[in-house]
Amino acid sequence: MRPFIEIEDLEYAYPLEGGDQIVALRGVNLTIERGEFVALIGPNGSGKSTLAKHLNALLLPTAGRVCIDGLQTSDPGNVGTIRQKVGMVFQNPDNQIVATTVEEDVAFGPENMGIPPEEIRRRVDSALVAVGLSAYRQHPPQMLSGGQKQLVAIAGALATRPSCIVFDEPTSMLDPVGRRQVLNTIRWLNTAEGITILLITHSMSEAAIAQRVLVMEAGRLVMDGAPALVFGQGTRLRALGLDLPPIVDIAQRLRTWGLSLPQTVLTVQDMVDALC
């Protein structure tokens, strides 16, 4: 079977007024298999959001190609199917809410797809159960916390029954409680529902929970590997202006003090086990 996401020699330039352009993606090659949990990190402006928007045909390649489940995004006939297969959740929860109650908001996507009402009702119910917001179905979304609004946005993406969800910095506006709610839900979507996840984040600790970490710099994909492998390259990441996850950082510093610690130390518990 072909990989779920196939990106070949992808280039993208934003046209500017007066004929100028900004090249945001340069020669990106990437495949992601069904069911993978992939994190994407990189400095501000490195092209992460631009790449994400290519995955459900919000942007189309200037050169190269993007295929989702074998369907090329640049073919207008594929766009509807691709948007059903790949859901998107963005950073600012307030900009994603479209309706006056939680359940209407969640129903918005499937309604646009022309799904029959009984089926919509079933999907809304199960999406709200999935994110733990069934009790809030009649609430106006404005009355919810930032974390809860983000869960509404996730439920909205779930209701279209996607095979993949792209999260573009879903937690960066949230407090730790909201962040935990959203991350636990993302993890559950991947392990229990088998949904392919691309998680864009500035938090290295969040990236460390993925199976695979991609690093972008200036429009290029510059690293790709398991978290321990990518975060093992501290010098390179620092040169890109990225931090290490705090525990990995502490481990590397302790190694320079002569302590031998396994490369796989990523979490507080790993470190306590290694030290005590």
Partner: peptide
Amino acid sequence: PAEAAAEIARAWGLQE
């Protein structure tokens, strides 16, 4: 991280 590493190094009696 730098402060925490230095504190652990101190408690473990490590030499840089």
